[in-house]
Design a protein around this nucleic acid. Structure first.
Lengths: 247, 247
DNA sequence: CGAAAACTTGACCCAACTCAACGAACGTGG
DNA sequence: CCACGTTCGTTGAGTTGGGTCAAGTTTTCG
């Protein structure tokens, strides 16, 4: 019966997509100590080498990404995150951060007290299961990215990134499915795909010329989902979007 | 006081490297229903698209790898596993397998009943924490692999794979550190690095010619750890080898 | 000992990179 | 609301790291 506008409601709703939560579980989540924060575009939320912060962040609105750099100064973006994604799951149980997390757009996050969230994850089986599912889906996406960057050519690689983003946005209820804003520079897209910005530019152009992708500024549209899906060699299984409340 | 030679002792020892376990935790682990199995080289332990098996496997001896294929038939190896690694963590909480797991060498595994392990993970905080740490270290390794395959040239990439393997083997007490057997064909190495077998052959040869790597059959040696480490741009932080019992 | 698998090597090719310049869009302050 | 600096996108020309194809050679193993 609570009409609360607490940002923790958002967390409850998120976790409830992964597992059935009873009243007690919900109450436990809703009593977690937390803060709401906003971060400007490209600010760092986590830096490689740091110890975990007091709060574990989840995105309420906006986009973020994870990134590592090589000694030669090349950057690789290793994942993209949208509202409902945890940005700090790794730091819940590891003591030193192994990569950077950066805001892509302006970001609104809820920071949940690390200790409390860890205790809840370890002691409440329903919450624990939801958190495990989140973490395992994230790992599955990493595996797909290794494959994408390791074994697909530039066209497929870029198309694959676009397909994944479209589908995750749709699953999060943030776009209709075949048209969406991807607020990413071509340089950032290059860093996701393991390509150079120049080559991304040309490849993206060729996708547009072939009528597979429409583009206006940072807005992307697909003419034909099954066409781009085939080109991208995109099999949505790895997103485990059906992994919802198998109770 | 138990002198048991149960393979579960191995699991206890493994998890005890991640978290302090008391007698009750140990007893709970030691009572898990399980089977020991052997698998011939290149047999499949998990296939993409499958539902989870009744048992969740952990390697007792031998090596295994995870692998995905593209529609064009290219294969990418996304991780390598050695004794003490879980092969089925993902299937503990996900309902469809998103990749293949294959034996690299002859394999001896302990299969722990999935349901029982899941319950223990969710209900026993110490075991839960150990399992989380395992899973998060695995995720960290995926991030590094995305970076390796996306942003390093062939020499560094291959050197990086060698460094990681050497250090993980050493950490597992399976080699001294600068000389070890890597029972992998050049084709498999290529599939780890996102290269072709021919190019792996030439690149490996050039590393040998430069005196950075020694090779005899499948045995690899490093002349100078800091030299290959620099070439590989290898920073062992991501392996979280110190992530041991922060109690 | 013989067949299959793994490793080598050479010759050639091309997808993607580099370098460099220019144009378009954005945002910020006056 | 315009001027202007900055970031982002676009394009051309030339280069190269790594791929392809194909033919040996060595190793492994039944």
């Amino acid at each position: 019966m609570q009409s609360s506008a607490s940002p923790l409601d958002f967390v409850v709703r998120k976790l409830a997509t992964r597992v059935a939560l009873d009243e007690r579980d919900r109450a436990a989540i809703l009593s977690l100590p937390h803060v709401v924060r906003t971060c400007p575009p490209s600010s760092y939320l986590v830096r490689e080498g740091e110890s975990p912060h007091k709060f574990c962040a989840l995105i309420l609105s906006g986009l973020a990404f994870r990134q590592k750099s090589t000694a030669q100064g090349a950057r690789q973006i290793v994942s993209l995150h949208l509202p409902g994604d945890f940005l700090d799951l790794q730091n819940l149980f590891l003591e030193i951060s192994d990569h950077n997390v950066q805001a892509l757009t302006a970001l609104e996050t809820i920071g949940i007290e690390r200790d409390a969230l860890r205790q809840l994850t370890l002691h409440n089986p329903a919450v624990g299961k939801a958190m495990w599912t989140e973490a395992q889906v994230e790992a599955s996406i990493y595996r797909e990215w290794v494959t994408n960057v390791g074994r697909r050519d530039a066209r497929s690689r870029i198309a694959h990134v676009l397909c994944e983003f479209a589908l995750r946005m749709k699953a999060a209820g943030l776009c209709a499915g075949t048209r969406f804003e991807l607020p990413v520079t071509q340089e950032q897209l290059a860093d996701m795909a393991g390509l150079t910005p120049v080559h991304v530019n040309r490849t993206l152009r060729s996708l547009v010329e072939d009528g597979i992708v429409h583009r206006d500024r940072r807005f992307i549209g697909f003419s034909n989902w099954s066409e781009i899906r085939a080109l991208a060699d995109f099999n949505p299984l790895y997103l485990h979007l059906d992994q919802i409340d198998p109770a």
